[in-house]
Simulated scan of single mutants.
Amino acid sequence: MLSIMQQDHLTVKSELKLLNQVQQWFEQFCLQHLSKRGWSENQLYRLNLALAEGFTNAVRHAHQSLPPDTTIDIDVSLWIDRLEIRIWDHGKPFNPDAIAEPEPGTLQVGGYGWFLLRRLADQVVYERSADDRNCLLIVKYGLQGQ
């Protein structure tokens, strides 16, 4: 069984203005641990974009009726073959499979973020945890896992 090589955790309030702080924290992690392992700038850009989409979705949708001081927890775990980002929110759960995929050339209100996430990452899972939080898991396989 593979073990975690590096990990980090960040807790922030549910405020869009904190997106910069979240992305800078993630970029620092990438500079320290991913760049020297051969991850490309393009992979890191895609992961940062996926993180931004997941965080803003938690703020805008999951926490929309909750106080701004409701926290969002973010975990980053680097394994030998992949990077995992977990974004934990306290909102009501939803079923992402119930979102209709936008047809090319048509307009649709909402739902684009979920499809963007699935195109940026190798695996995206959204589930309710035993502690009544939701977890968005974003997985990207590295050089060894491709």
Rank of each mutant, 00 (worst) to 15 (best):
A62W: 00
D89F: 00
G111A: 11
Q123E: 15
L107N: 09
I74G: 10
Q32F: 01
A58Q: 01
S14E: 01
L18N: 15
A100P: 04
G113E: 10
W39S: 10
P104H: 04
H63S: 05
F26Q: 03
P102C: 08
Q123F: 10
V59P: 01
H90W: 09
Q64R: 12
F55V: 05
Q7Y: 05
Q43L: 09
R118S: 10
T106M: 07
V109F: 14
Q123R: 15
W39H: 04
S40I: 02
R118A: 04
F55T: 07
L120I: 00
G38L: 10
N95F: 00
V124R: 07
S40L: 08
L83G: 02
V22N: 11
R118F: 01
Q108C: 00
L10R: 02
G111Y: 07
S65F: 06
Y45D: 14
D75L: 14
E103F: 08
F115H: 14
Q21T: 12
K17F: 08
T106C: 05
Q28L: 12
S40Y: 03
L31S: 12
I99A: 06
N42F: 01
S35M: 11
A58F: 03
L51E: 07
P102D: 08
H33T: 08
L83H: 00
V12R: 10
V12E: 10
L116G: 02
A98D: 15
L83W: 00
L78P: 00
I85A: 06
G110F: 12
G105W: 00
L116N: 11
V109H: 14
T71M: 12
L78N: 02
G105A: 03
L107Q: 10
F94I: 08
L78E: 07
L47K: 02
